[in-house]
Design a protein around this nucleic acid. Structure first.
Lengths: 160, 160
DNA sequence: TGACAATGTTTGCCTTGGCAAGTATTCTGG
DNA sequence: CCAGAATACTTGCCAAGGCAAACATTGTCA
């Protein structure tokens, strides 16, 4: 049974366009509140991936963020230049380069995290915790569907 | 009462990062299925805005999509070049330029719409209609919160 | 083991969006 | 009425991502 019908599809209410709008305001808010740190939302996500041990190389950060490897190289160049991130050639796999936060990076990241969490809480004002959990679950179910359809959150080549 | 706490914030599950991922797979799927028409997701949204009478000028399309006016000029140049959209100087307000689909645009758009709705239905497989409605409502509530915080990325006139 | 595929990173080129300045037109307050 | 603000669009310039090619290294398998 289909959810949406082309004849009645409303781009002002349907889930896909709404997702885009909500994401847009999220990023706008994050950008504004991270500005004092001279950090952009994308940079924050890179730092957060490293800080949370969700990724430890450029390529793993790329697959998590679905970001281009070429662009990532340049971004890490900049973050390294600013002394927030360090590159360490891996001993086990000499192709890879381990990434880690510098002491300076570890010091300032918590402030950015606080900002990001603050934005999330502000936008979810009025939601109960149960609702948020339900919301998270629905998002995960969509990702699972995407997964089954072959749209994993990896580079196109990695999909095979 | 806050939803998220920096100490336990998980970027793999929290709403903001999940929104980004879900949107990314949506766009990837849309891009792939629109490729046969040589149309990109952004182009589709422009055409959809015009087809659904949600917008009828470049600026109104911009506010709906939170898109840059400069980029929009170039995009419409291209769509006009391809014979899908037509520019008609407005008689009432001679600053504005009315946009409309050409007969050719009207002819091909339904196929793109079918693709887009198909993607939405595929990704929402397993959702009941009630769940989708609830999902839409939550997204709207977030936009309303953004609104109160001064992040009105959508043109007000476009929402009326 | 030896070709060949795959992975991780980098670089150059191209496309596209963001931003600022400029023009034309309309709106507004004194 | 009219000077200045606001709106609609355009253009040029810059920043950043997407893509492809190149290189080094590792994995696979006949």
């Amino acid at each position: 049974m289909s959810i949406y019908d082309p004849a009645t599809y409303d781009i002002r209410k349907a889930v896909p366009p709404m997702l885009g709008r909500v994401r847009a305001v999220f990023i706008a808010a994050l950008e504004e509140r991270l500005a004092p740190f001279d950090i952009k939302p994308v940079d924050y996500v890179v730092l957060a991936s490293l800080a949370n041990d969700v990724a430890d190389t450029a390529s793993s950060v790329c697959s998590i963020m679905s970001h281009d490897p070429g662009a990532m190289t340049r971004k890490i160049d900049a973050l390294e230049q600013r002394g927030l991130v360090r590159r360490v050639r891996s001993a086990e796999d000499r192709r890879a380069i381990k990434l880690e936060l510098t002491p300076e990076g570890r010091k300032v990241f918590p402030k950015m995290l606080a900002v990001a969490v603050g934005v999330a809480n502000d936008f979810l004002r009025g939601f109960s915790k149960a609702e948020v959990r339900q919301f998270e679950d629905m998002l995960q179910r969509i990702l699972d569907n995407a997964d089954e359809m072959g749209f994993e959150l990896l580079g196109k080549e990695a999909r095979r």
